Each structure stands twice: as structure tokens, then as C-alpha cells.
Amino acid sequence: MGGSVRREPPRKRIARVQTADRDATTGKGKAAGSQPRKVRALATEASLVRSAREIFERDGFVSARIVDIAENAGVAYGSFYTYFDSKEEIFRAVALAVAEDMYSNAYPHQADDGQQTTLSRIEDANRRYLQAYARNAKTWAVIHQVATFDDFARELLREIRLRFVGRAAQALRRRQEEGLAPSDIDPELAADLLGGMIENYAYLHLALDDSVSPSELERVVAEATRIWARAIELRP
């Protein structure tokens, strides 16, 4: 990234890019010819991120080229550097967008109406996680590839794991307080171990092998939920 001007962090930028992307998709805002320059710039940036994801999924990170990303987005090669300093920076924007999709869809922001049982909550969490992973599986394979040599990708994977494990541990502690799970289980360790089971399945069978059908995924959800319930000795 050399001596270029410091731009806002990719995490902050991606929120703007996603907003512009949604507006462009839904047709919100003014017609293209009358859009303010800033809005058009955000739309171009969003287009570059979408294009980069396609190229990374097709070619992998190492073989992906900026010229292909720009051409795929319909942007001049030199214009790429108006928005991103390097291939590494646009990859980070792609990875953050995928992580946000995982967060928002695996754990949607909605109030618990009290009607779900503990078992159905576990099942719902497993299903949402695996469906979100399957939707982004090709990009996850690239993120794992990059994590072997890049600190950012490693930290992103770690952050995602910690967030999901923390959520599961919190839920398990509540079940213990309610007397629905044994008190001698370590909630953090149990959540880490059981979450690792789901995560490893997703990587091996979704990221590395895209042959899992929706019906097969449902069978995996059911089996994973039974294993979770038995492992924490879930009580009626």
C-alpha cells in the first residue's frame, strides 16, 4: 500500500459499499445520470467488490489479477486505484462483506417471542449457520487459503469463531441457570468444541466440496442438533 493516502478502514467502508449496493439493486435514489458524484463513486466501489469476489472465487487469491477485477466490473484499470490500494485491500473488503452476511443471517436481530424450545433454538442456529456458510462457500475456501499467509484473514476467521462460540456459550449458561443443562459443563469449552464440529463440517463439505444438496443439509442440521442436545445432556 506504499505511500498512498490513508483511506478509511475496510470494515467501515464496506458498510457504505453495501448500502450503495442495496440502493443500486432496489432502484432507490435518483436516475444514474443525475446521481451525485459521491453516490456514483459508491456504486462503482460496490461493483468492484462484487467483481473481485467473482474473480477470487474463480481464480483463487494468488492467481487473481487486478486487471481482471476491473474489466469484470466495467471499470478502467487505472480507476481501480481510486478506490483500493491493492489486491489485498479489496480482498479484505470482500471477506468483511461475507463475514457480515454470516453475522446478520445466522443471528438475525429479532426478539425472542418465548415460543421456541431450547432444542428448536439450537436447530435454528445450526441451520442458519450452515445455510449462510453454503451461500458463501466458495469465498470461504479462498479466505482459508489466504489465512495461511495473511494475518488479516487469520484474525477474521478467529473473530467469526469467537463471536459464534460466545453466542452459544451464553445460551448454554442460561440453560444451566434454568436447570435445563448440567452445571458441571464448561459453557465456553463445550461451545468451542461443538461449534468446531459444525465449522469443520462446513469447511470440508461446503467450502471444499459443493455437492451437498439442500435436503442433505437438512439431514446434517437434524443430526448436528441431536449431537448438541446429547452432548450438553439437555433436559426437557
Rank of each mutant, 00 (worst) to 15 (best):
V17H: 01
L119M: 05
S120W: 13
K28P: 00
I198E: 02
A64G: 08
D59C: 07
A106S: 15
G33D: 13
D112L: 15
A24H: 08
T25E: 15
D186R: 02
R40A: 14
F149M: 11
R173I: 07
R173T: 07
F84G: 02
E54P: 00
I185F: 04
I122D: 01
G74F: 11
G29K: 12
D124W: 11
N126R: 13
H109V: 13
S213R: 15
K12G: 04
I160M: 14
D101P: 00
A153M: 06
R92T: 02
K38M: 10
D85F: 06
S47I: 02
P236L: 15
I55E: 03
R37S: 08
G74E: 08
G60W: 13
A190D: 01
R22I: 09
R58V: 03
A147W: 07
Y81N: 07
G114K: 13
G74Y: 05
D68A: 11
M1H: 05
T44F: 03
V165K: 03
S47W: 02
A73Q: 01
V146C: 05
A73K: 01
L194M: 14
E178W: 01
R16V: 01
R7I: 11
V94K: 03
A222R: 11
D85Y: 05
F56Y: 12
R127N: 04
Q145E: 15
E45I: 00
G114H: 11
R16C: 00
V146N: 04
K138M: 09
I66L: 14
A169P: 03
V67L: 07
G2T: 10
A224Q: 11
S47N: 08
Q170M: 12
P182Y: 08
E88G: 03
R235N: 09
E188F: 08
N136F: 06
E218K: 04
R161T: 09
V62I: 12
Q131R: 15
A43L: 13
A222D: 11
E8A: 09
G195K: 03
S183T: 11
R174M: 13
R154F: 10
A147D: 02
F61S: 05
E216Q: 14
A70T: 02
L130H: 05
W140A: 03
G60D: 06
N72M: 07
I227R: 12
Y107A: 08
Y201F: 15
V49R: 01
D23E: 11
A207W: 13
I66K: 01
R174V: 12
T19D: 00
I185H: 00
R175K: 07
V67C: 06
R174Y: 02
L162W: 08
R53F: 10
D68E: 12
G3L: 12
G33A: 14
I14M: 10
A169Y: 04
T25K: 15
A24T: 01
A24K: 08
A52M: 07
R128K: 13
R92I: 05
A171W: 05
V212Y: 03
A231W: 09
A64F: 14
R173E: 10
R219Y: 09
V49C: 10
S63R: 15
R65S: 08
E218C: 04
I69A: 04
V94A: 05
A125Y: 04
T148F: 09
F164R: 04
A224N: 11
L193T: 07
D59M: 06
S47M: 12
V39F: 06
W228D: 00
V220M: 10
A169N: 05
L119Y: 10
